[in-house]
Amino acid sequence: MTPPPLRYPLPTIVILVVLTILGWRGRDWLAAASASVWAGIERLRSGPPFPESNEPIRVGGPILRKVLLLRDGVEATDVPEGKPVETISRRIFADVYDIWPLSGEPTHYRIGNRRPIGWVEAGVVLPWNTRLVLCPTGSSLTMRADPGDREVSPLSLDSVPFPVLDWSSEAVRVAVWEPSEPWSKVQRRGWIRIQDVPPETFGVLVTRYELLELLRLAIEPTRDDSPPGRMMAVLGMLGSESRLNNEQREAARRQLPGEILGVRSIGDDSVEEQLGRINEGWNPDVSWSGIAFQAIPLTAIPAP
């Protein structure tokens, strides 16, 4: 029996077979390929992935990068401008785990304590790694936009303590509060030369519990492994279970402003007497989350 003649050339038949197979299986292949392509396009459009660190950022030695929440009820999101994951009901000092963007001025911080909570906008926090402040003394100082600027603006220290945000060997950078919203809204930031600041003006923000811990350290004989009270107060670590070894202490000293950390007591009274009077006349400067804080002069704290 003679087979029927082929009506189409062999290449055409091969193409038809391939197209038939593609029509049968190609839908799945095309969907997979399309998903891969769109995922690549989405990655390009969204930019690099957001960081997800498990440990807080270290400035140097034991010093962590920290922020102060400026109000209650801050929503934390899964990514910058993302979905809310938790509401931080009360103001806190928080550790910084990540910043965004990775370079330039941060627009968002990923914060938490003991664990990351989520991302918050830069406008609702004050970057403040220590508890250093300029205390109200009635003095009048001059502030510069940059340490080397000649143009100055007056600054009166007659009301609320100013957080010390940064420093160099010659100047400190402070945050000045909006008069109508102290501790909640920053009016401006600027630099003040250390040589212009009276030693007793430098202080640290402490709780009543931390003040009592300072008093205990001043009264009790200091053991070799005891943390230096002033350094621990500046770092906000008073009363914590953490202990600094010699290497960590030296690293902290290298990072902290030595001209400030080393100021000595003024007058004939001992630090025990000065701290005792502060405790008896406890008068908080601010209170949030049910915890009161008062700025006390560094000259009343045992030097490291």
Rank of each mutant, 00 (worst) to 15 (best):
P106Y: 08
C135Q: 09
R208I: 00
N246H: 13
E151W: 10
T107N: 10
R253W: 01
P4N: 02
F93R: 15
D285V: 05
P3I: 02
G281R: 15
T142V: 14
R115V: 15
P3C: 07
S265F: 07
Q248R: 13
W100N: 10
R90Y: 14
W167N: 09
R223F: 10
I296G: 10
I99W: 01
E200H: 04
G290I: 07
R208M: 08
G60K: 04
N113A: 06
I219D: 05
L19K: 02
V186A: 05
V125A: 01
W191G: 04
V85F: 05
R43H: 04
E213G: 00
Q248M: 15
I194T: 15
I192K: 07
D98R: 05
N245A: 04
R91F: 04
R144A: 15
L215D: 03
G73H: 00
S139N: 14
W177L: 06
S180R: 14
I111Q: 03
L256P: 04
F293T: 02
I21F: 04
P62E: 08
W183I: 09
R230N: 08
A251T: 02
E105Y: 05
E55S: 13
Q248S: 14
E273I: 12
S169A: 12
A33P: 04
R58I: 09
R7C: 00
L30Y: 06
G290P: 03
A171P: 09
G26M: 02
A295R: 07
W177P: 07
P297T: 07
L275H: 11
R253D: 01
T2N: 10
R277L: 13
A292Q: 09
V204C: 05
E178F: 08
W119I: 03
R249Q: 05
I296A: 02
D149N: 12
D268R: 10
I117F: 15
A171V: 09
L165K: 06
F293I: 02
Q187Y: 12
G276V: 00
R249S: 00
R90L: 14
P106R: 07
L238E: 11
V125T: 10
R188S: 04
V286Q: 01
G236H: 06
P4Q: 13
E42S: 07
D158P: 01
I92A: 15
P228V: 08
S34K: 06
L238I: 06
A252D: 10
I21A: 10
D146N: 13
S34V: 07
E259D: 12
D224V: 08
P9N: 13
V172P: 01
K66I: 00
I57A: 14
W167I: 03
G138I: 11
Y209S: 11
E272F: 04
R45M: 07
E121L: 09
I260L: 04
S103I: 11
P84F: 03
G203S: 02
E273T: 13
G123C: 01
F293A: 02
